[in-house]
Design a protein around this nucleic acid. Structure first.
Lengths: 343, 343
DNA sequence: TTGAAAGCGCTAACAT
DNA sequence: ATGTTAGCGCTTTCAA
């Protein structure tokens, strides 16, 4: 038997003060034409009557929702949790809210996310493409409907939209070069699914680093996995027979699996096999030995993506410039797992 | 010079088919009164004209948004990332979307979140109370305005709303009992801020476990920190002079800091000091020695919180039953850091 | 089975 | 400086 909750509207305030609804609206929005006196009176009444503006009505009228849709593979993955953190921070600082949708790395869910966001009339979409996604039409649709789109981490050139990515190539190049500088020559690599640009770029960085240092690329020292601890274990088992003296793993979980295999084989890290991973997962610092890795500036990626979005909002429809692509430079973090040379 | 994007409305479809807008609306919503023929015709036209329903207009008319507001301290914290994952999963399965707001553990931002959600006319709010928050009026306001509220992890009895929490007391009791069973008698505890219910409950579980096993509680073996690696290091430095043979840390990061201090002091884990943490952070499994801890079922917490919300939606305004409180039973995970007794 | 009309709450163009 | 009016796109009541 609860009373139906009736909410105060601007009309209620208008009646209370014997003014027009438009006046109330203007006063609340600090329209300069409204006299200070009525402005104050309105605001006071609003407070007294516990008025809560109806953003839905306002959105319908204005044609914009002040909401950004964000699509990530999963909030459970550290990396994306951090990115979301950065995005939401910048968004709320700009008076925007974040509507979240997880693709769970599934193409169908990703399409559904775009659909939902279209219906919700979000003012823009920030997305990281799912690993499963090959057809990008749903994202192209967004663009053609005039909804600003910014990609982060998993971007794709063909979409021609602003994006923030990490320079995976450079990170891989630096990581591999570091191992070479430590005196390693038989450097193995465990890669990920090659249709994922990031993983492919890391492979390329690895190969080029070897080339630059005049070390022949040995296909037998390269394994491809599915980017998980288990996959790291498996791949390393195969690679060990090739007697590598170092490993560059596509990311930290893969490195972790490899470490387990190496230890089980009775080899020492880094003396027998030096290791460097990628992503600077929280745990990497606390492994024994602590894992060298590549830091991707995740929170900053989110912040930059959101910032790029707000830039895009401003010049919406103007400028025919090519979309901005922000490439964050990763930095290698050298820890015990790759410190072969003393000092 | 981009064309203004004009979107198809039900009126456009209506004109196209020479029917009323109401008919289109009904057809699209599968209203039983509409003949199969027109229903199909409408849907086909909608597809052809690339119609995207305007959820904002619909929300305004219906008075509900199909959006849940979620307040968490930070998406960067693993724990909350997982919870969000669970919430969003269940929400989208029910046709709802998640609007995310981070409090960054700040009372002011938390109030702002509630305010924003009120303005956005979310259909409900799921929240985890910030550590800084003492005054709960903003949450009470939500309730009084008829917005369903469900709390998770950080709940508070006085609010009288449904909640999902972990049985911190039990987890702490079990963790401490486990150390006792391992033969430890001088068990130290590093606690957190005591106004946070969870931390206080863990302290109580620790104390009661000692009592039950007839071990005197020694205040000198208890330290209070700020729940961080650094704080764990500091607290452990003080505790070491008391010669503890075990430590129950309020959570894994604190445990990690303590481990560093213990190692630096040249003591062995678990032989000299056995350790168990709390939260089952990802890294805990990969420490050396691997860290015993307490698993909190984070994803499930999110799922349950969302489920509780949907239950609440259904019986909105009915039932004067006390709010449901779901208590997830944590489970201790025994790893090397507390395995004193062989086997 | 369908249509006409009203209204959700807000804002803006056009008055005065 | 303020009021009048119309309309954003949808759903629903009432009528036919």
């Amino acid at each position: 038997m609860s009373e139906p909750i009736v909410r105060t509207t601007i009309l209620d305030i208008a009646r209370e003060l014997n003014v027009a609804a438009a006046t109330v609206s203007r006063a609340l929005n600090d329209h300069p034409a409204i006299s200070i006196a009525t402005r104050e009176a309105v605001k006071q009444a609003a407070r007294r009557m516990n008025y809560q503006p109806n953003k839905i009505a306002s959105s319908l009228r204005l044609g914009r929702s002040k909401i950004i849709g964000v699509i990530i593979p999963s909030a459970e993955i550290n990396f994306f949790g951090s990115v979301i953190h950065g995005i939401e921070k910048v968004a709320s600082r700009n008076g925007y809210n974040v509507l979240l949708y997880q693709s769970n790395e599934q193409y169908e869910l990703e399409k559904k996310a775009v659909q939902t966001f279209l219906h919700s009339r979000v003012d823009g979409v920030l997305a990281s493409i799912s690993k499963e996604t090959i057809n990008l039409k749903h994202y192209a649709d967004l663009k053609s409907k005039g909804v600003p789109l910014v990609l982060f981490d998993r971007a794709h050139e063909s979409l021609q939209v602003p994006s923030v990515v990490v320079n995976d190539y450079q990170g891989a190049f630096d990581a591999t070069s570091h191992l070479i500088q430590q005196g390693c020559r038989r450097i193995a690599h465990i890669g990920g699914q090659q249709h994922v640009t990031n993983f492919n770029q890391r492979l390329r960085g690895y190969i080029d680093a070897l080339n630059v240092h005049n070390i022949a690329v040995d296909d037998d020292l390269i394994a491809y996995g599915k980017v998980s601890i288990e996959s790291g274990r498996e791949c390393m088992k195969n690679l060990l027979s090739r007697n590598p003296d170092a490993l560059f793993a596509v990311e930290d979980f893969t490195a972790l699996g490899a470490i387990q295999t190496i230890k089980e084989a009775g080899l020492r890290i880094p003396e027998d096999v030096a290791i460097i991973g990628f992503a600077n997962e929280k745990f990497s610092e606390y492994l024994t030995p602590s894992l060298s890795t590549v830091n991707q500036h995740t929170v900053r990626m989110g912040e930059e993506a959101a910032t790029l979005f707000f830039e895009l909002l401003q010049k919406k429809g103007s400028s025919k410039l090519p979309p901005r692509k922000l490439v964050l430079q990763p930095e290698i973090i050298v820890r015990a797992s790759s410190a072969v040379k003393p000092g």
